[in-house]
Protein backbone atom coordinates (compact mmCIF):
# COMPACT_ATOMS: atom_id res chain seq x y z
CA UNK A 1 0.00 0.00 0.00
CA UNK A 2 1.05 3.61 -0.59
CA UNK A 3 1.81 4.84 2.93
CA UNK A 4 1.38 8.52 3.76
CA UNK A 5 3.47 10.39 6.34
CA UNK A 6 1.95 13.88 6.77
CA UNK A 7 4.60 16.59 7.21
CA UNK A 8 2.54 18.48 9.77
CA UNK A 9 3.31 15.85 12.43
CA UNK A 10 7.04 16.66 12.25
CA UNK A 11 8.19 18.07 15.58
CA UNK A 12 8.44 21.85 15.36
CA UNK A 13 5.72 22.16 12.71
CA UNK A 14 3.75 25.39 13.11
CA UNK A 15 0.02 24.92 13.56
CA UNK A 16 -2.53 27.73 13.28
CA UNK A 17 -5.56 27.59 15.55
CA UNK A 18 -8.97 29.06 14.68
CA UNK A 19 -8.21 32.20 16.70
CA UNK A 20 -5.07 32.76 14.62
CA UNK A 21 -2.72 31.71 17.38
CA UNK A 22 0.37 29.76 16.24
CA UNK A 23 1.60 26.74 18.20
CA UNK A 24 4.10 23.95 17.65
CA UNK A 25 2.53 20.57 17.01
CA UNK A 26 4.17 19.07 20.10
CA UNK A 27 2.73 21.83 22.32
CA UNK A 28 -0.93 21.36 21.37
CA UNK A 29 -3.39 20.67 24.17
CA UNK A 30 -6.94 19.26 24.16
CA UNK A 31 -8.35 22.76 24.71
CA UNK A 32 -6.66 24.05 21.58
CA UNK A 33 -8.77 21.68 19.47
CA UNK A 34 -11.95 22.20 21.50
CA UNK A 35 -11.72 26.01 21.34
CA UNK A 36 -10.78 25.97 17.65
CA UNK A 37 -13.86 23.89 16.85
CA UNK A 38 -16.06 26.23 18.91
CA UNK A 39 -14.83 29.21 16.89
CA UNK A 40 -15.09 27.33 13.61
CA UNK A 41 -18.26 27.97 11.62
CA UNK A 42 -18.49 24.53 10.05
CA UNK A 43 -16.47 22.03 12.06
CA UNK A 44 -17.26 20.29 15.31
CA UNK A 45 -15.41 17.78 17.43
CA UNK A 46 -16.49 14.17 17.77
CA UNK A 47 -15.33 11.80 20.47
CA UNK A 48 -14.02 8.64 18.85
CA UNK A 49 -13.42 5.70 21.14
CA UNK A 50 -10.87 3.08 20.07
CA UNK A 51 -12.56 -0.33 20.17
CA UNK A 52 -10.10 -2.40 18.10
CA UNK A 53 -6.40 -2.34 17.21
CA UNK A 54 -5.23 -5.05 14.79
CA UNK A 55 -1.55 -4.89 13.90
CA UNK A 56 -0.62 -5.51 10.28
CA UNK A 57 3.18 -5.70 10.47
CA UNK A 58 3.59 -6.76 6.83
CA UNK A 59 2.28 -3.35 5.80
CA UNK A 60 3.62 -1.37 8.80
CA UNK A 61 0.01 -0.44 9.50
CA UNK A 62 -2.79 -1.24 11.92
CA UNK A 63 -6.51 -1.63 11.42
CA UNK A 64 -8.26 0.59 13.95
CA UNK A 65 -11.91 0.34 14.93
CA UNK A 66 -13.61 3.44 16.35
CA UNK A 67 -17.07 4.19 17.75
CA UNK A 68 -17.65 7.77 16.68
CA UNK A 69 -19.77 10.58 18.07
CA UNK A 70 -23.19 10.80 19.63
CA UNK A 71 -24.66 8.33 17.12
CA UNK A 72 -21.99 5.73 17.94
CA UNK A 73 -21.13 5.17 14.29
CA UNK A 74 -18.77 2.20 13.81
CA UNK A 75 -15.78 3.17 11.67
CA UNK A 76 -12.74 1.14 10.64
CA UNK A 77 -9.59 2.78 9.30
CA UNK A 78 -6.11 1.60 8.36
CA UNK A 79 -3.30 3.81 9.68
CA UNK A 80 0.46 3.62 9.77
CA UNK A 81 1.87 2.31 13.05
CA UNK A 82 3.44 5.72 13.72
CA UNK A 83 0.38 7.82 12.88
CA UNK A 84 -0.39 10.16 15.83
CA UNK A 85 -3.97 10.43 17.08
CA UNK A 86 -4.89 13.08 19.67
CA UNK A 87 -6.42 11.49 22.78
CA UNK A 88 -8.54 13.69 25.05
CA UNK A 89 -6.50 14.70 28.10
CA UNK A 90 -3.54 12.57 27.05
CA UNK A 91 -2.21 14.12 23.88
CA UNK A 92 -0.56 12.56 20.87
CA UNK A 93 -0.76 8.74 20.88
CA UNK A 94 0.09 6.08 18.32
CA UNK A 95 0.24 2.29 17.91
CA UNK A 96 4.05 2.39 18.00
CA UNK A 97 5.34 5.47 19.87
CA UNK A 98 8.96 4.57 19.14
CA UNK A 99 8.28 4.71 15.41
CA UNK A 100 6.47 8.04 15.77
CA UNK A 101 9.47 9.45 17.61
CA UNK A 102 11.79 8.13 14.92
CA UNK A 103 9.65 9.30 11.97
CA UNK A 104 8.36 12.63 13.27
CA UNK A 105 10.44 13.38 16.35
CA UNK A 106 7.07 13.60 18.11
CA UNK A 107 6.69 12.14 21.60
CA UNK A 108 3.60 9.88 21.67
CA UNK A 109 1.83 7.79 24.27
CA UNK A 110 0.80 4.24 23.45
CA UNK A 111 -2.63 4.19 21.81
CA UNK A 112 -4.88 1.63 23.51
CA UNK A 113 -8.39 0.25 23.23
CA UNK A 114 -10.66 2.53 25.24
CA UNK A 115 -8.78 5.72 24.44
CA UNK A 116 -11.07 8.55 23.30
CA UNK A 117 -9.62 10.40 20.34
CA UNK A 118 -10.47 13.78 18.85
CA UNK A 119 -12.00 13.55 15.38
CA UNK A 120 -13.91 16.10 13.33
CA UNK A 121 -17.20 16.26 11.53
CA UNK A 122 -19.14 19.02 9.81
CA UNK A 123 -21.63 20.98 11.89
CA UNK A 124 -25.26 20.20 10.94
CA UNK A 125 -26.11 22.76 8.27
CA UNK A 126 -29.57 24.15 9.15
Amino acid sequence: PQLHYPPHFMKGSIIQLSNGELKRVEDLQTDDFVQSAEISSDLKIDSSTVVKIEFNPDHSTAILGFVVGEHKVQVTVEATLEHPFFVFGQGWSSCEPDRSLHRYGLDCQKLSVGDVCISLTHKDVQ
Binding site: S36, F86, T121
Partner: peptide, 19 residues
Amino acid sequence: VPVFPWHALVPFLTNTGPP
Protein backbone atom coordinates in the same frame (compact mmCIF):
# COMPACT_ATOMS: atom_id res chain seq x y z
CA VAL B 1 8.08 28.25 7.20
CA PRO B 2 4.88 26.34 6.35
CA VAL B 3 1.91 26.86 8.66
CA PHE B 4 -0.64 24.05 8.90
CA PRO B 5 -4.30 24.52 9.94
CA TRP B 6 -5.36 22.82 13.20
CA HIS B 7 -8.04 20.73 11.47
CA ALA B 8 -5.41 19.00 9.29
CA LEU B 9 -4.14 17.10 12.33
CA VAL B 10 -7.22 15.19 13.36
CA PRO B 11 -9.26 12.81 11.21
CA PHE B 12 -12.74 13.19 9.78
CA LEU B 13 -14.20 9.80 10.65
CA THR B 14 -17.86 10.40 9.75
CA ASN B 15 -19.72 12.68 7.38
CA THR B 16 -22.33 15.19 8.52
CA GLY B 17 -25.56 14.48 10.37
CA PRO B 18 -27.04 11.29 11.81
CA PRO B 19 -26.95 8.13 9.69
